[in-house]
């Protein structure tokens, strides 16, 4: 049972890469997607992302993510269709028209967002959050406090989701029907339940801060980490690949 952004244990190449390399690759990859409007190139990027997910057995998680991103990007795409009168006219609108260019722009947006999101999310699925935070502290010299804040935020996501599940179950047992009447009804029923969730989260984060402090939080330095995160050949290859993709995207945009 794995939740949102939760590490899935494994031993694939992606699992074994240096966390910093993975993070940098994902960020550069995303930037690359926004550097070009070339649909063919973006499709290649998208395919690459899918291939990466397949290589580490995360297709299920990535498909779930793609669905969510698709819903979001579809809204943007529809807006684009109606507001960018480009290319050959297909449908006339009072304020302009929908053309082949509009459809192309919409498709580009969807593919771009999907492609950009995959490696970013994949990073969380194949990297322990502690490795990620420890390595950015050690390699990138990010202050530990920030890394820890980030790590505990992510750590608490499943805890709170679990709480929410428990709360919804308790109410279901009392006859509240979350499963009928669609999403609007569900949200309407869930709003009052945010009170107990809020109460328990405030309580939890408070005691979590204390628990961290009595276990030497303030003593932690960059050297404290037990694990070392040296860069291997594969890490450099991955980073080179990221830079290569970025360069290719910029060239495409400038040349075409």
């Amino acid at each position: 049972m794995n939740g949102f952004l939760e590490y899935v244990p494994g031993d694939s190449l992606l699992h074994r890469l240096n966390p910093v390399a993975k993070l940098l690759f994902a960020i550069v990859f995303a930037i690359t997607c926004f550097c070009t409007g070339n649909l063919v190139f973006l499709c290649c990027m998208f395919a690459l992302g899918i291939a990466m997910a397949a290589s580490c057995g995360m297709m299920k998680q990535v498909l779930g993510l793609m669905k969510a991103v698709f819903v979001f990007s579809l809204i943007l795409a529809i807006l684009l269709v109606f507001t960018t009168p480009q290319g050959e006219m297909l449908v006339e609108l009072p304020w302009g028209y929908i053309g082949t260019g509009s459809l192309l722009a919409a498709a580009t947006t969807i593919v771009r967002l999907e492609a950009a999101a995959i490696p970013l999310f994949l990073t969380f699925y194949v990297t322990k959050i502690s490795d990620l935070s420890n390595s950015v502290v050690k390699v990138l010299h990010v202050p530990y406090k920030y890394a820890f804040t980030f790590a505990s935020t992510v750590h608490f996501i499943p805890v709170f989701m679990n709480d929410m599940k428990g709360i919804m179950e308790a109410q279901t047992a009392r006859g509240i029907e979350f499963d009928v009447g669609g999403i609007v009804n569900k949200v309407r029923l869930m709003v009052p339940l945010c009170v107990p969730l809020l109460v328990s989260s405030v309580r939890k984060t408070n005691s979590a801060a204390i628990a961290a402090e009595v276990r030497g939080f303030n003593l932690r330095t960059r050297e404290s980490g037990y694990k070392q995160y040296p860069f291997s050949g594969a890490d450099f290859v991955v980073l080179a690949l990221a830079v290569g993709l970025l360069a290719a995207a910029i060239c495409l945009t400038v040349l075409l």
């Binding site: 709360i167 308790a170 109410q171 047992a173 006859g175 009052p192 328990s200």
Partner: peptide, 24 residues
């Protein structure tokens, strides 16, 4: 049985009362 039909037949006390209480 629907959720509400079950709730009318079976009352359920959970381990953690905090999950259940939601009124002021």
């Amino acid at each position: 049985l629907k959720t509400s039909e079950l709730a009318r037949r079976v009352g359920f006390l959970f381990q953690n009362p905090d999950n259940q209480i939601c009124s002021s």
